[in-house]
Nucleic acid binder design. Structure first.
Length: 722
DNA sequence: AGCACGCCGACT
DNA sequence: GTCGGCGTGCTC
């Protein structure tokens, strides 16, 4: 057979395909193993690039090692990889790596081994007799066998080695398929109407973007699950993206209630055999519904009839390092490729989505729509939100109105939630003798005091040191002062004010163990906690029937700094937190402490007028040409040597294209000028909508050669401005 | 990203 | 005299 040259894309951060020799043509999508320098890598046969890549070919091509016994990578996924590469400017191979996230799954799965009675004879101990007793006709997994016999797994393994047990392959158990015909909870007329609109979109099987908007409790999930059912009934598959933290047992219970079977789950915590099996099941088309966090978008699922992005405004859909993609935006690309609708669900949609779908009165983009779900009858209305003006107040972190609110709630046997988006005891430690502030040696950031651990931590790089006894600068004793509040300090203050109250903390790192977190949430739900103090992880989803008072300790925190989405994010976060109050029988009350009671975000929250605030924000963005009325890209130049980094950043700026509608700001030291020991300079590129920003960036940056030890990170449509 | 190759400090 | 630090360069 004639030798053929095949282009292969490899999961390494290089922006090119590599040519190999094969015995014959291999269709694009074929999964192959190839030699790569001293290594062997698994890659995917790709379409040949449109024109021969510049740069020289090697004298001799090496041969494809073997074809793997895995389903070919679907065309749609290859096109997604190509599109994401072009949009994010990430190296081609780095994007492929998102797809080939489970290399082991590409190998034929090893059969699971079960044990049955073997032929050999040996001295039988009591434990061994027990194992043989419980062993029936059908083979059992070793762990199951050991459990039933009440012995250790070592006994079972030992018996297998002696030949007392025969190992036989067991078939992989197939999880039950979701049943679309199983009827869901009865829908309200408004829900049924919205569901019908989504079902019609699924039936059309065309690219479309539908915003599904409604207050918490309006029943958005039930509505889009009807669309999921329709897609399944038509023999199509479904992908549901959720922020990592929204992938909760409660959500899964709702799914199972509707479909009688669980979906395939995908998130970062999955490891080992479960991760491998899930990937394989999806690749082989045996998972009708996949539910996962942002990385699930790159699973090799084919035949999609619907994509749902729930909590579409959530900024955790944006990946800030490596391939800087936004899963919501990439999902829209995927929807185009798959020719299926994408449902974006949220109680507080992003400005981007509101504008795109015409929800704020702008002309909607073609093939978009908005469904607005009203609150359900009998559902608790959103709680009353009151602002507490902190101007001219000094001293304690909790104002008198909030303290009175706490006392009243506890006296009535109700629960309270205090929200402060700051882990630890205090965000800053300073010396009262010399004024020295304790900073991180690797980052331009203050060390955060964590009293429970008796350590100072850097929240950016993980650096930590023991809580010092005296000032490391002047040596003064007992001079170190904790400045500003963190949740730990708040807990201390509440304990002082309400000594009899049962107070607990909940943050991303505390309690440490998932089981302890679950126990804490149970305690909160059952009323065994009076005051829960937490960071933003308490904002989402939880249903605490006895919770009537929510206190936002520092409503202004998110508004500081020059982040273009600060107002939007603060509104979304505080709205979510506020929604925790009054979900049970008794009405809720929300107190937001603020130094800016006249700020549009605060006024919108207090008046419950979301649309007005969104319009105001939209107008500001339009006026300043900010997203979605223009695009941004951040170029972060970093390296261990500050002056080389600065010089490289200036060189990049000098090479900037002179194009109508494209502005380059900077370079300037990034807000976090030192991060993990690397000095950072930032350029901000602003483009008008008619400019093809990624294409301009590619042309600009392609010829740039960076000096040694200097790196460039391109972040198109950045969400983090650090 | 890995991995090898290559030139300078503290050890059996 | 070697082991090993990580800087540099390459991978069809």
């Amino acid at each position: 057979m004639a030798e053929t040259i095949v282009p292969v894309l490899l999961p390494v951060p290089l922006d090119q395909v590599f040519d190999y020799l094969a015995d014959g043509p291999l269709p694009p999508g074929t999964v192959v193993e190839v030699p790569f320098g001293p290594r062997r890598l698994i890659g995917v046969v790709w379409e040949a690039p449109p024109r021969p890549e510049e740069g020289r070919r090697p004298a001799r091509l090496r041969a494809v090692q073997r074809r793997l016994d895995a389903p070919p990578l679907p065309d749609q996924i290859r096109r997604l990889v190509d599109r994401v590469r072009l949009e994010t400017l990430a190296p081609w191979g780095a994007v492929l790596k998102l797809v080939l996230s489970v290399p082991a799954a590409l190998e034929p799965p090893e059969p699971r081994l079960g044990y049955r009675l073997g032929p050999a004879e040996a001295r039988l101990t009591a434990a061994r007799k027990k194992v043989l007793e419980v062993l029936g006709d059908s083979p059992l997994l070793p762990a199951e066998l050991a459990r039933r016999a009440g012995v250790g797994s070592a006994v079972v393994r030992g018996m297998a080695e002696l030949g007392l047990l025969d190992a036989v392959p067991l078939p992989e158990p197939e999880p039950p398929a979701p049943d679309p015909a199983r009827s869901g909870p009865a829908l309200s007329p408004a829900q049924a109407e919205a569901a019908a609109a989504l079902e019609a979109a699924v039936d059309r099987a065309e690219p479309a973007v539908v915003l599904l908007e409604g207050v918490p409790g309006a029943g958005k999930t039930e509505v889009y699950l009807e669309a999921v059912a329709r897609a399944l009934a038509r023999g199509r598959r479904v992908l549901v993206l959720l922020p990592e933290i929204a992938l909760s047992p409660a959500w899964l219970a709702r799914f199972e209630a509707r479909f009688g079977a669980p979906p395939a789950l995908w998130h970062s915590e999955l490891t080992g055999a479960v991760r491998r099996r899930t990937w394989r099941r999806i690749a082989e088309g045996r998972a009708p519904v996949v539910v996962g966090a942002r990385s699930a978008l790159f699973l090799p699922q084919s035949g999609l009839g619907l994509i749902v992005v729930d909590e579409e405004h959530d900024s955790s859909f944006k990946q800030d390092d490596g391939v800087t993609y936004h899963a919501r935006d990439a999902a829209l690309i995927r929807g185009e490729i798959e020719s299926c609708p994408v449902v974006l669900a949220s109680a507080t949609p992003s400005i981007e989505t509101l504008v795109r779908t015409g929800a704020l009165g702008d002309p909607p983009q073609p093939r978009t729509g908005r469904l607005l779900l009203p609150a359900r009858h009998g559902e608790a209305p959103l709680p009353r939100i009151e602002l507490v003006d902190l101007r001219a107040r000094r001293g304690a972190w909790l104002s008198p109105p909030l303290v009175q609110g706490l006392e009243a709630a506890l006296a009535a046997g109700e629960q309270a939630l205090l929200f402060l988006n700051r882990r630890g005891y205090a965000p800053l430690t300073l010396c009262r003798a010399c004024g020295h502030r304790l900073g991180c040696p690797n980052c331009s950031a203050w060390l955060v005091s964590h009293r429970l651990r008796r350590r100072l931590l850097c929240h950016h790089c993980g650096y930590s040191e023991p809580q010092p006894e005296h000032c490391p600068h002047c040596g003064a004793v007992d001079s170190l002062h904790a400045a500003g509040p963190g949740v730990e300090r708040l807990a201390e203050e509440v304990a002082g004010l309400l000594p009899e109250a049962r107070v607990r903390l909940l943050t991303s790192d505390q309690p440490a163990r998932p089981s302890e977190v679950a126990a804490l949430l149970d305690d909160m739900a059952s009323g065994a906690i009076d005051v829960l103090i937490g960071t933003q992880i308490v904002a989402k989803g939880h249903h605490f029937p006895g919770l009537t008072l929510v206190g936002v300790v520092d409503g202004d925190m998110g508004l500081a700094g020059g982040d273009l989405r600060a107002a939007e994010r603060t509104f979304q976060l505080l709205y979510q937190v506020a929604g925790r109050a009054g979900r049970g029988a008794r009405p809720g009350r929300v107190l937001i402490q603020t130094h800016m009671p006249d700020h549009p975000v605060m006024l919108a929250l207090a008046r419950g007028d979301k649309d007005a605030a969104c319009r105001l924000e939209r107008d500001e963005r339009r006026l300043s040409g900010m997203p979605p009325f223009g695009r941004l890209a951040a170029l972060i130049v970093s390296g261990p040597d500050a002056s080389r980094v600065a010089e490289a950043a200036r060189a990049i700026a000098r090479a900037a294209p002179v194009v109508e509608g494209l502005t380059v700001l900077g370079p300037a030291p990034a807000p976090l000028a030192l991060l993990r020991g690397r000095h950072r300079e930032r350029l901000l590129v602003k483009a008008r909508p008619e400019v093809d920003l990624p294409a301009r960036l590619r042309a600009w940056l392609r010829p740039i050669r960076l000096p040694a030890r200097v790196r460039l990170l391109v972040d198109v449509d950045p969400y983090s401005f650090l």
